[in-house]
C-alpha cells in the first residue's frame, strides 16, 4: 500500500542535507508552509540555498532560519517587503547572497525544471540590469533572454487537503507557487490541514497530483496570518 502520510513534522523533514536547495511555497503568508519551515529550523540542515518569493518577515520562519546563519543564498523576486529586517541586515553585512529573479521568470524556471526543460527564452528583463551576463537571442524580431531551469533538492509546500497518494488541493489564492515548486524538487514535502480517504478528493480538484509529492503531514495551521 502506498502511504506518503507521516506522523510528525520532524519525520517529514528527516534527511534534509546540508547544502540543499530548498523551495518554500507561499505568497506572503498565504500558502506558506510555516510549520515545515519551523521544522527545518529544528532539523538543523545548514548552508542552504532558499528559493521563496519574499526574503522572510520579522524574526520567524524563513527570517529566523536566516538569522541563525543557516542560509547561504536566497533566490527571490521581492526581498524588500515590509518587515524583512533580518534579510536587510545580513545582506548589508555581506553575510547572505542574493539572486533577484523576476517573479514570472522564477515560477517558469521551476516549472521548466519540473518539465525536463533545461533552459528557455523569455522577453522578461531584456534591456535591464537583470539580463546582464545572460545569453540574448532574437526570435521574429524580438529580443529574449535565456534563463536556466531551477531544480531543487527539497520543496516545502502548503496544501489544503491531501490523500495517502500525495494528491493535493489548495484553498483559493493559497495555490500560488506551491504546484510549480512541487514539480521542481527531488523531495517534495507538503503540509496540509485535512487528510482525506483515497478516492474522496474529486480528481477534478486535485491541483498537484501525487506523482510530485514524497511526504505529507497534517498540521492545524488555521487561517493565514495577515
Amino acid at each position: 500500500m502506498i502511504n506518503k502520510i507521516v506522523n510528525s513534522v520532524a519525520e517529514a523533514l528527516a534527511g534534509v542535507k546540508d547544502g540543499s536547495t530548498v523551495l518554500i511555497g507561499g505568497f506572503g503568508s498565504v500558502g506558506q508552509p510555516d510549520e515545515l519551515i519551523e521544522g527545518l529550523i529544528e532539523q538543523g540542515a545548514t548552508d542552504l540555498t532558499c528559493v521563496a518569493n519574499n526574503a522572510g518577515t520579522g524574526h520567524v520562519g524563513l527570517a529566523r532560519l536566516m538569522e541563525l546563519g543557516r542560509v547561504r543564498k536566497i533566490i527571490c523576486s521581492f526581498p524588500r517587503s515590509a518587515g524583512s529586517v533580518v534579510f536587510e541586515e545580513l545582506y548589508r553585512e555581506g553575510k547572505i547572497e542574493l539572486e533577484i529573479v523576476p517573479q514570472g521568470t522564477m515560477a517558469e524556471r521551476m516549472r521548466a525544471a519540473g518539465a525536463g526543460i533545461p533552459a528557455f527564452y523569455t522577453a522578461t528583463s531584456t534591456g535591464t540590469l537583470l539580463a546582464k551576463g545572460k545569453e540574448e537571442r532574437e526570435f521574429n524580431g524580438r529580443k529574449y533572454v535565456m534563463e536556466h531551469a531551477l531544480k531543487a533538492d527539497v520543496a516545502l509546500i502548503e496544501g489544503w487537503e491531501a490523500d495517502r497518494w500525495g494528491n493535493i488541493t489548495y484553498n483559493q489564492s493559497g495555490r500560488n507557487f506551491n504546484p510549480v515548486m512541487a514539480m521542481a524538487a527531488d523531495i517534495t514535502i507538503a503540509q496540509v490541514q485535512h487528510i482525506r480517504e483515497l478516492g474522496e478528493l474529486s480528481p477534478e480538484m486535485i491541483a498537484t497530483p501525487g506523482i510530485y509529492v514524497k511526504r505529507v503531514v497534517r498540521v492545524d495551521r488555521g487561517a493565514p496570518w495577515a
Partner: peptide, 21 residues
C-alpha cells in the same frame, strides 16, 4: 524598481514580466 545600479537589494516582483508581457 531600482533607484541606482548600486541599489543594495531592489525588489522587482512581477514588474518586468508585466512590463513586457
Amino acid at each position: 524598481w531600482a533607484t541606482s545600479e548600486n541599489d543594495t537589494a531592489p525588489a522587482v516582483g512581477g514588474a518586468m514580466d508585466l512590463g513586457v508581457g
